[in-house]
Protein backbone atom coordinates (compact mmCIF):
# COMPACT_ATOMS: atom_id res chain seq x y z
CA UNK A 1 0.00 0.00 0.00
CA UNK A 2 2.84 2.34 0.78
CA UNK A 3 3.85 3.79 -2.53
CA UNK A 4 7.08 5.70 -2.81
CA UNK A 5 5.11 8.92 -2.70
CA UNK A 6 3.31 8.13 0.56
CA UNK A 7 6.56 6.82 2.05
CA UNK A 8 8.36 10.08 1.45
CA UNK A 9 5.33 12.00 2.67
CA UNK A 10 5.39 9.92 5.83
CA UNK A 11 9.05 10.75 6.31
CA UNK A 12 8.26 14.43 5.94
CA UNK A 13 5.47 14.15 8.51
CA UNK A 14 7.70 12.40 11.01
CA UNK A 15 10.68 14.67 10.59
CA UNK A 16 9.75 17.72 12.71
CA UNK A 17 8.97 15.68 15.81
CA UNK A 18 12.12 13.60 15.44
CA UNK A 19 14.40 16.56 14.76
CA UNK A 20 13.00 18.56 17.67
CA UNK A 21 13.41 15.71 20.12
CA UNK A 22 16.87 14.94 18.79
CA UNK A 23 17.95 18.53 19.44
CA UNK A 24 16.20 18.55 22.81
CA UNK A 25 18.03 15.42 23.83
CA UNK A 26 21.49 15.92 22.38
CA UNK A 27 22.24 19.62 22.83
CA UNK A 28 21.53 20.09 26.56
CA UNK A 29 22.91 16.69 27.48
CA UNK A 30 26.08 17.35 25.48
CA UNK A 31 26.44 20.70 27.21
CA UNK A 32 25.96 19.11 30.64
CA UNK A 33 28.65 16.57 29.82
CA UNK A 34 31.01 19.34 28.68
CA UNK A 35 30.37 21.52 31.76
CA UNK A 36 30.90 18.55 34.04
CA UNK A 37 34.59 18.64 33.10
CA UNK A 38 35.01 22.37 33.78
CA UNK A 39 35.86 24.41 36.84
CA UNK A 40 33.08 26.87 36.23
CA UNK A 41 31.38 28.97 38.87
CA UNK A 42 28.88 31.69 37.94
CA UNK A 43 30.24 33.89 40.73
CA UNK A 44 33.65 33.84 39.07
CA UNK A 45 32.97 33.05 35.41
CA UNK A 46 36.24 34.47 34.02
CA UNK A 47 38.25 31.95 35.98
CA UNK A 48 37.00 28.90 34.08
CA UNK A 49 39.38 26.01 33.46
CA UNK A 50 39.49 22.35 32.54
CA UNK A 51 38.80 20.22 35.58
CA UNK A 52 39.15 16.67 34.32
CA UNK A 53 37.35 14.31 36.69
CA UNK A 54 37.56 16.72 39.60
CA UNK A 55 33.85 17.55 39.68
CA UNK A 56 32.92 13.90 39.77
CA UNK A 57 35.44 13.21 42.50
CA UNK A 58 34.22 16.19 44.44
CA UNK A 59 30.62 15.09 44.12
CA UNK A 60 31.44 11.50 44.91
CA UNK A 61 33.47 12.23 48.04
CA UNK A 62 31.03 14.82 49.43
CA UNK A 63 29.18 13.24 52.38
CA UNK A 64 26.06 15.14 51.29
CA UNK A 65 26.14 13.16 48.05
CA UNK A 66 25.81 9.82 49.79
CA UNK A 67 23.20 11.20 52.13
CA UNK A 68 21.22 12.46 49.16
CA UNK A 69 21.53 9.12 47.34
CA UNK A 70 20.30 7.37 50.48
CA UNK A 71 17.42 9.84 50.82
CA UNK A 72 16.52 9.37 47.16
CA UNK A 73 16.38 5.61 47.73
CA UNK A 74 14.31 5.87 50.91
CA UNK A 75 11.94 8.39 49.36
CA UNK A 76 11.45 6.36 46.18
CA UNK A 77 11.06 2.98 47.88
CA UNK A 78 8.90 4.40 50.67
CA UNK A 79 6.49 6.03 48.26
CA UNK A 80 6.46 2.95 46.00
CA UNK A 81 5.62 0.69 48.92
CA UNK A 82 2.79 2.89 50.19
CA UNK A 83 1.29 3.54 46.77
CA UNK A 84 1.47 -0.02 45.45
CA UNK A 85 0.23 -1.72 48.61
CA UNK A 86 -2.37 0.98 49.22
CA UNK A 87 -3.29 1.08 45.56
CA UNK A 88 -3.99 -2.66 45.41
CA UNK A 89 -6.18 -2.52 48.52
CA UNK A 90 -8.10 0.57 47.44
CA UNK A 91 -8.53 -0.67 43.88
CA UNK A 92 -10.02 -3.93 45.18
CA UNK A 93 -12.30 -1.99 47.48
CA UNK A 94 -13.58 0.32 44.74
CA UNK A 95 -14.05 -2.68 42.44
CA UNK A 96 -16.56 -4.18 44.87
CA UNK A 97 -20.23 -3.52 44.27
CA UNK A 98 -20.70 -0.26 46.14
CA UNK A 99 -23.11 2.65 46.09
CA UNK A 100 -21.79 5.81 44.47
CA UNK A 101 -18.82 4.12 42.84
CA UNK A 102 -18.34 6.98 40.38
CA UNK A 103 -18.06 9.59 43.12
CA UNK A 104 -15.75 7.43 45.23
CA UNK A 105 -13.50 7.05 42.19
CA UNK A 106 -13.45 10.79 41.58
CA UNK A 107 -12.60 11.55 45.22
CA UNK A 108 -9.80 8.99 45.24
CA UNK A 109 -8.08 10.17 42.05
CA UNK A 110 -8.33 13.87 42.86
CA UNK A 111 -4.96 14.33 44.61
CA UNK A 112 -3.21 13.44 41.38
CA UNK A 113 -4.45 16.66 39.80
CA UNK A 114 -3.15 18.90 42.56
CA UNK A 115 0.06 20.62 41.50
CA UNK A 116 3.06 19.69 43.70
CA UNK A 117 3.57 23.10 45.39
CA UNK A 118 -0.10 23.28 46.35
CA UNK A 119 -0.16 19.69 47.63
CA UNK A 120 2.95 20.29 49.71
CA UNK A 121 1.75 23.62 51.15
CA UNK A 122 -1.68 22.24 52.07
CA UNK A 123 0.00 19.39 53.95
CA UNK A 124 2.63 21.64 55.49
CA UNK A 125 0.28 24.33 56.77
CA UNK A 126 -3.10 22.74 57.23
CA UNK A 127 -2.39 19.10 58.04
CA UNK A 128 1.09 18.75 59.56
CA UNK A 129 1.70 22.18 61.08
CA UNK A 130 2.77 21.74 64.73
CA UNK A 131 0.35 24.39 66.05
CA UNK A 132 -2.43 24.87 63.49
CA UNK A 133 -2.47 21.56 61.60
CA UNK A 134 -5.18 18.91 61.78
CA UNK A 135 -2.70 16.35 63.14
CA UNK A 136 -1.87 18.75 65.96
CA UNK A 137 -5.58 19.22 66.64
CA UNK A 138 -6.02 15.45 66.83
CA UNK A 139 -3.00 15.11 69.15
CA UNK A 140 -4.36 17.86 71.42
CA UNK A 141 -7.77 16.19 71.44
CA UNK A 142 -6.17 13.04 72.85
CA UNK A 143 -4.04 15.08 75.21
CA UNK A 144 -0.78 14.25 73.44
CA UNK A 145 1.96 16.70 72.50
CA UNK A 146 1.76 17.70 68.82
CA UNK A 147 4.64 16.55 66.62
CA UNK A 148 6.69 19.00 64.57
CA UNK A 149 6.68 16.71 61.55
CA UNK A 150 9.04 18.60 59.26
CA UNK A 151 11.63 19.20 61.99
CA UNK A 152 11.54 15.75 63.55
CA UNK A 153 10.70 13.50 60.59
CA UNK A 154 11.50 15.59 57.51
CA UNK A 155 12.01 12.78 55.02
CA UNK A 156 9.07 10.79 56.31
CA UNK A 157 6.82 13.86 56.03
CA UNK A 158 7.83 14.33 52.41
CA UNK A 159 7.21 10.63 51.74
CA UNK A 160 3.67 11.05 53.11
CA UNK A 161 2.97 14.03 50.86
CA UNK A 162 4.41 12.44 47.72
CA UNK A 163 2.65 9.14 48.45
CA UNK A 164 -0.64 11.04 48.77
CA UNK A 165 -0.05 12.53 45.33
CA UNK A 166 0.79 9.20 43.67
CA UNK A 167 -1.63 6.87 45.44
CA UNK A 168 -4.42 7.87 43.00
CA UNK A 169 -2.26 7.05 40.01
CA UNK A 170 -1.43 3.58 41.32
CA UNK A 171 -5.05 3.00 42.34
CA UNK A 172 -6.44 4.08 38.98
CA UNK A 173 -4.08 1.89 36.95
CA UNK A 174 -4.50 -1.13 39.20
CA UNK A 175 -8.27 -0.64 39.10
CA UNK A 176 -8.20 -0.56 35.30
CA UNK A 177 -6.26 -3.80 35.35
CA UNK A 178 -8.55 -5.35 37.94
CA UNK A 179 -11.62 -4.61 35.87
CA UNK A 180 -10.28 -6.74 33.03
CA UNK A 181 -9.96 -9.76 35.34
CA UNK A 182 -11.95 -12.74 34.14
CA UNK A 183 -14.98 -12.91 36.43
CA UNK A 184 -15.88 -16.48 35.47
CA UNK A 185 -12.49 -17.81 36.47
CA UNK A 186 -12.85 -16.08 39.80
CA UNK A 187 -16.31 -17.50 40.25
CA UNK A 188 -15.11 -21.01 39.41
CA UNK A 189 -12.34 -20.72 41.98
CA UNK A 190 -14.84 -19.51 44.52
CA UNK A 191 -17.19 -22.41 43.81
CA UNK A 192 -14.33 -24.85 44.16
CA UNK A 193 -13.90 -23.50 47.63
CA UNK A 194 -10.68 -21.54 47.20
CA UNK A 195 -10.37 -19.14 50.15
CA UNK A 196 -10.22 -15.40 49.50
CA UNK A 197 -6.51 -15.17 50.25
CA UNK A 198 -5.52 -17.89 47.77
CA UNK A 199 -7.82 -16.38 45.15
CA UNK A 200 -5.96 -13.11 45.68
CA UNK A 201 -2.49 -14.69 45.54
CA UNK A 202 -3.09 -17.08 42.64
CA UNK A 203 -5.57 -15.17 40.48
CA UNK A 204 -5.73 -11.45 41.25
CA UNK A 205 -2.06 -10.77 41.88
CA UNK A 206 -0.70 -12.57 38.77
CA UNK A 207 -3.32 -10.80 36.68
CA UNK A 208 -2.21 -7.42 38.04
CA UNK A 209 1.51 -8.21 37.80
CA UNK A 210 1.98 -6.31 34.59
CA UNK A 211 0.09 -3.25 35.82
CA UNK A 212 2.05 -3.29 39.07
CA UNK A 213 5.30 -3.37 37.09
CA UNK A 214 4.18 -0.41 35.02
CA UNK A 215 3.15 1.54 38.12
CA UNK A 216 6.49 0.90 39.81
CA UNK A 217 8.56 1.84 36.78
CA UNK A 218 6.66 4.98 35.81
CA UNK A 219 6.45 6.24 39.35
CA UNK A 220 10.16 5.64 39.85
CA UNK A 221 10.95 7.94 36.93
CA UNK A 222 8.90 10.72 38.52
CA UNK A 223 9.95 9.97 42.10
CA UNK A 224 13.64 10.33 41.26
CA UNK A 225 12.80 13.91 40.26
CA UNK A 226 10.81 15.00 43.33
CA UNK A 227 11.63 18.67 43.78
CA UNK A 228 8.84 21.15 44.51
CA UNK A 229 7.59 19.21 47.53
CA UNK A 230 11.03 19.53 49.14
CA UNK A 231 11.47 23.17 48.13
CA UNK A 232 8.31 24.43 49.79
CA UNK A 233 8.44 22.28 52.94
CA UNK A 234 11.91 21.58 54.34
CA UNK A 235 14.23 23.15 51.77
CA UNK A 236 16.19 19.91 51.98
CA UNK A 237 16.91 20.24 55.68
CA UNK A 238 17.52 20.12 58.53
CA UNK A 239 21.08 19.81 57.23
CA UNK A 240 20.71 17.44 54.30
CA UNK A 241 18.17 15.21 56.04
CA UNK A 242 15.55 15.60 53.30
CA UNK A 243 17.77 16.43 50.31
CA UNK A 244 17.46 14.02 47.42
CA UNK A 245 19.79 13.89 44.42
CA UNK A 246 17.61 16.24 42.38
CA UNK A 247 17.56 18.77 45.18
CA UNK A 248 21.31 18.49 45.78
CA UNK A 249 22.01 19.25 42.12
CA UNK A 250 19.57 22.15 42.22
CA UNK A 251 21.42 23.54 45.24
CA UNK A 252 24.79 23.21 43.55
CA UNK A 253 23.57 24.97 40.43
CA UNK A 254 21.27 27.66 41.78
CA UNK A 255 22.48 28.35 45.31
CA UNK A 256 26.22 27.67 45.01
CA UNK A 257 26.43 28.70 41.34
CA UNK A 258 28.70 25.69 40.83
CA UNK A 259 28.03 24.91 37.18
CA UNK A 260 30.70 22.20 36.91
CA UNK A 261 29.63 20.36 40.04
CA UNK A 262 25.93 20.53 39.20
CA UNK A 263 26.65 19.21 35.71
CA UNK A 264 28.62 16.27 37.11
CA UNK A 265 25.71 15.54 39.46
CA UNK A 266 23.36 15.77 36.48
CA UNK A 267 25.32 13.13 34.59
CA UNK A 268 25.19 10.85 37.63
CA UNK A 269 21.41 11.37 37.76
CA UNK A 270 21.16 10.42 34.07
CA UNK A 271 23.04 7.19 34.68
CA UNK A 272 20.76 6.29 37.59
CA UNK A 273 17.60 7.14 35.67
CA UNK A 274 18.78 5.10 32.71
CA UNK A 275 19.10 1.98 34.78
CA UNK A 276 15.40 2.29 35.62
CA UNK A 277 14.51 3.35 32.10
CA UNK A 278 15.92 0.20 30.52
CA UNK A 279 13.49 -1.91 32.51
CA UNK A 280 10.57 0.36 31.72
CA UNK A 281 11.30 0.33 28.01
CA UNK A 282 11.26 -3.45 27.99
CA UNK A 283 7.92 -3.60 29.76
CA UNK A 284 6.35 -1.04 27.45
CA UNK A 285 8.03 -2.34 24.31
CA UNK A 286 6.45 -5.76 24.69
CA UNK A 287 3.07 -4.16 24.28
CA UNK A 288 3.82 -2.59 20.92
CA UNK A 289 3.12 -5.58 18.69
Amino acid sequence: MATRQTASLARLMRAPAIVLLLIWMLVPLGMTLYYSFLNYNLLNPTNTSWAGWFNYQYFYTDPAFWESIWNTLVLTLGVLFITVAGGILIAMLIDKPIFGQGIVRILVISPFFVMPPVAALIWKNMIMHPSYGVFADIAKFFGAAPIDWFAQFPLFSIIVIVAWQWLPFATLILLTSLQSLDGEQMEAAEMDGAPALSRFIYLTLPHMARAITVVILIQTIFLLGVYAEILVTTNGGPGFASTNLTYLIYRAARLNFDIGGAAAGGIIAVVLANIVAIFLMRAVGKNLD
Partner: peptide, 26 residues
Protein backbone atom coordinates in the same frame (compact mmCIF):
# COMPACT_ATOMS: atom_id res chain seq x y z
CA UNK B 1 8.93 2.92 13.52
CA UNK B 2 9.06 0.90 16.70
CA UNK B 3 12.64 1.98 17.37
CA UNK B 4 11.74 5.61 16.81
CA UNK B 5 8.84 5.36 19.24
CA UNK B 6 10.99 3.71 21.87
CA UNK B 7 13.66 6.34 21.41
CA UNK B 8 11.09 9.11 21.84
CA UNK B 9 9.96 7.47 25.04
CA UNK B 10 13.56 7.33 26.24
CA UNK B 11 13.89 11.12 25.98
CA UNK B 12 11.10 11.32 28.57
CA UNK B 13 13.27 9.33 30.97
CA UNK B 14 15.92 12.01 31.08
CA UNK B 15 15.83 13.59 34.54
CA UNK B 16 14.99 17.29 34.26
CA UNK B 17 17.71 18.21 36.72
CA UNK B 18 20.34 16.70 34.41
CA UNK B 19 19.81 19.48 31.91
CA UNK B 20 19.10 22.21 34.48
CA UNK B 21 22.53 23.79 34.02
CA UNK B 22 22.52 24.15 30.22
CA UNK B 23 18.86 25.14 29.98
CA UNK B 24 19.29 27.72 32.71
CA UNK B 25 22.36 29.19 31.01
CA UNK B 26 20.72 29.17 27.58
Amino acid sequence: TKDILMWMLSTKMMPAVAVLVPIYLI
